[in-house]
């Protein structure tokens, strides 16, 4: 089976690992929101900061990109959609699309998508799933009418299933290759030969996994460990917020 490490927790010891999970989750939200609100210059500025901050954490970027082929396809779709829908100065005389504005907005949309993926990667690589589980539970606890333990459990389970999905997708691709279905020109057929086994596989697999969890006494309740936030962590959190302010002024 292909080696998939993307979106998995990986042990490490950089500063991001030591940040309290609740604060890290909050940072993730603030950064994601900012990336969608900022101008092009602002996004680039914030991206530069993110890259510097995580340079010690996300090593081996080439391997990551190789594992995320599926996302590259989505990325191309996003860029292509903007490029063919924004009107303005045509780049080539005689053709209505692509326009200069379309190209720019396509690139911005694509870059935003890449940054969101990178943020998600950083979060899942540096946070243990049970920490996510506990943090989401703690955040939701004050809200009435919210079953915080159930939501937290579902969320950490979803995160857990991402690598399984990617594993299965790869397996199906290999199986298709082995049976020479790969090269079909009909895109509908192509998609259905992947998604049908993927969905039925996921359902089967999810059933087995939930039974395995049940036999190890899983009940969806929150893990009892509560993380107290330390002063140092608040400082780190504040430091991470600093570049967001000038980014909005750019």
């Amino acid at each position: 089976m292909a080696e998939i490490t993307v979106f998995h927790f990986q042990a490490g010891n950089t500063l991001i690992y030591r940040l309290n999970t609740k604060l890290k989750l909050l940072l993730l939200l603030i950064y994601s929101f900012s990336i969608y609100q900022l101008s092009l210059k602002g996004v680039l500025f914030l991206s530069a900061f993110i890259f510097i901050a995580v340079s010690g954490t996300l090593t081996k970027p080439a391997g990551l990109i190789r594992q995320m082929k599926g996302f590259i396809f989505i990325l191309i779709l996003i860029v292509a959609a903007s490029m063919t829908s924004v009107t303005g100065d045509p780049l080539f005389t005689g053709l209505p699309f692509p326009t200069r504005e379309g190209l720019l907005s396509g690139m911005l949309a694509g870059w935003r998508f890449v940054m969101i993926i990178i943020l998600g990667l950083i979060f899942t690589t540096t946070t243990r799933p049970n920490q996510i589980h506990a943090a989401v539970g703690e955040i939701l606890k004050p809200f009435p009418l919210v079953n915080e333990s159930a939501i937290a459990a579902r969320m950490s389970l979803t995160i857990m299933f991402i690598p399984i999905l990617m594993d299965m997708l790869n397996e199906i691709r290999e199986a298709r290759k082995a049976r020479y279905i790969e090269g079909s020109r009909n895109p509908v057929k192509n998609i259905s030969t992947i998604t049908v086994p993927l969905i039925s596989g996921v359902i089967l697999r999810a059933g087995e996994t939930s039974m395995a969890m049940e036999s190890r006494l899983y009940s969806g309740a929150l893990p009892g460990t509560k993380q107290a936030v330390q002063r140092k962590e608040y400082l780190l959190f504040a430091a991470c917020l600093v570049p967001v302010v000038p980014a909005f002024l750019l």
Partner: peptide, 9 residues
């Protein structure tokens, strides 16, 4: 064996 994996480490 794969379907029994429930955590990331």
């Amino acid at each position: 064996a794969d379907s029994q994996i429930v955590s990331q480490t």
